[in-house]
Amino acid sequence: MGMNEIHVRVLDKDEWATYRDVRLRALRESPEAFVASAEEEEAFEDSVWQERMERSRRILAVDGEDVIGVVSVGTGHRTGIPGAGELFGLWVEPPRRGSGVARRLMEKAARVGREVGLKQLVYWVGTDNGRAVAFASSFGFRPTDDRRPMRIRGVDEEDADSEEMMMVYPLTDTGGVPTSL
């Protein structure tokens, strides 16, 4: 289970079923972390998953045959910021959290962003998710003043006032490793 056995790679477009399976696992395991719900996405036709593979790069972390994490990089159409792509859907299976898998996924996401010509990555993080904010900050993401309501389907309405904050990571030529903080 050492980190040297973990491989991080970008999925090919024809690997949509692999992405679907890990995405549904993530939604079932951590429903509070996503805007979507497993029930909703389980009903998607195959064509929806195939289309999703066209829109964003899907990055997988695997240990042997086991998929242990995923993150997506959108190519900028959603951010409204020129040269910016969106990092989203980050998930690592619970036993692997804190072991460096998320960092490896983020490093690969930064490399992919550079390869497709992005200047920065935008990452929306729940303001009440201290662990995620701290992790993103440690990687080099910086908080901004941009906030938006966080709408989580199927979760108690009492959380309706939850917010996400936009964090931004400049894609400089540091190879995905942040410069000294």
Rank of each mutant, 00 (worst) to 15 (best):
87 L>Y: 15
35 V>R: 03
84 A>Q: 07
117 G>F: 01
61 A>Y: 14
5 E>W: 00
36 A>I: 01
99 S>R: 14
67 V>I: 12
28 R>Y: 04
117 G>Q: 01
155 V>L: 07
123 Y>H: 13
67 V>P: 02
166 M>E: 13
124 W>M: 08
165 M>C: 13
46 D>M: 11
58 R>K: 12
107 E>Q: 15
45 E>Q: 14
27 L>P: 02
157 E>H: 02
94 P>I: 10
55 R>Q: 10
132 A>L: 09
139 F>N: 12
170 P>E: 11
178 P>M: 10
137 S>D: 13
97 R>T: 12
96 R>D: 09
163 E>H: 08
127 T>W: 06
120 Q>C: 07
81 I>W: 03
137 S>F: 02
139 F>V: 15
163 E>W: 08
133 V>G: 09
77 H>N: 04
13 K>I: 13
169 Y>N: 08
161 D>A: 08
47 S>C: 13
5 E>I: 00
39 E>Q: 04
158 E>S: 06
59 I>H: 13
121 L>P: 03
37 S>E: 05
79 T>E: 08
86 E>D: 10
165 M>Q: 14
43 A>I: 00
20 R>K: 11
164 E>L: 09
144 T>C: 09
67 V>T: 12
81 I>K: 06
113 G>N: 07
48 V>T: 14
139 F>L: 14
126 G>N: 12
70 V>P: 00
100 G>I: 11
23 R>I: 05
157 E>C: 00
155 V>K: 06
13 K>P: 01
159 D>G: 04
101 V>E: 14
33 A>W: 07
97 R>E: 10
145 D>E: 14
56 S>C: 09
90 L>Q: 05
131 R>N: 11
7 H>I: 15
19 Y>D: 06
169 Y>F: 14
164 E>K: 09
110 A>Q: 11
40 E>N: 04
78 R>D: 04
90 L>P: 02
71 V>W: 02
49 W>L: 02
50 Q>G: 02
137 S>N: 11
21 D>C: 04
177 V>G: 07
14 D>C: 07
81 I>R: 08
19 Y>T: 02
165 M>N: 10
108 K>C: 15
130 G>Y: 10
114 R>C: 10
134 A>L: 13
171 L>Y: 09
152 I>Y: 01
79 T>H: 04
72 S>I: 00
150 M>L: 11
178 P>C: 10
91 W>Y: 14
31 P>W: 04
52 R>C: 03
18 T>I: 12
140 G>S: 14
51 E>L: 11
56 S>G: 05
168 V>I: 09
157 E>L: 06
166 M>D: 01
101 V>T: 14
24 L>S: 05
95 P>A: 09
24 L>K: 03
57 R>P: 00
105 L>V: 05
133 V>M: 14
142 R>E: 14
64 G>C: 15
16 W>I: 01
84 A>T: 06
88 F>K: 08
33 A>N: 08
92 V>T: 15
65 E>K: 15
142 R>W: 14
42 E>V: 05
3 M>V: 02
35 V>Q: 03
175 G>S: 13
17 A>Q: 09
180 S>G: 06
163 E>A: 07
28 R>W: 05
32 E>M: 04
16 W>A: 03
